[in-house]
Amino acid sequence: MIIADRKPLEEIQEMVKSCGKILLVGCKGCVTVCNVGGLKEVQVLASILRIARKKEGRPLEVEEKVLERQCDPEYVEQLRDTYDQYDAVLSMACGVGPQFLSEAYPDQRFFPAVNTKFMGGAVQHGIWEERCAGCGTCIIHFYDGMCPIARCSKSLLHGPCGGSADGKCEVSSDIECIWDKIVRKKMEQDRLEDLRVLRAAKDWRTARDGGPRRSIREELVK
């Protein structure tokens, strides 16, 4: 899923400083699962914004709503009757949400309340880690299910760099060296020879380097 963090409160307050009434809209998709933009987080942020502005003597009216998904026009459509009743709309979805909203309602202003970070999953309660860089050509089967593009700081494809020490990355001791894990697993399974294969320079066209991407399923296109 897509992992996001809420933006610093000061940044959000700056975005809506000229507003008197806003809609704060969450999403029941990824950001609900990673506890950043679901119903609970919408309620908390709305309260914080109201209290902060009340203290300033300039009350802010914040209405709350949570859409099933903000990345789907069908659900975005649910704001049709009300979107223009606000000075601005603050979205707690990933970066896709406010863009779909502003495409559907071009005469309204939409602000992102979260920073979208990566595709990954929860490794323990409250901790999420990156697993996929969305390069468009999956190669994890060469590396026993571990992606060096997303999980090696240098995206190395032929083994660890000289900065790997004690299973940690040179960038930070909080980052595991994925190559340490790949090599260990290959050794355990007696398949270290796999790593002798020279991989061709990667074709980055399927990543962002071919320009903004699009996925078409002919059987679904009417």
Binding site: A201, D203, W204, R205, A207, G210
Partner: peptide, 13 residues
Amino acid sequence: QDLAFGDHHQAKA
């Protein structure tokens, strides 16, 4: 120009 115009289409910009 974008890499798509050139002779190393697979490169990362």
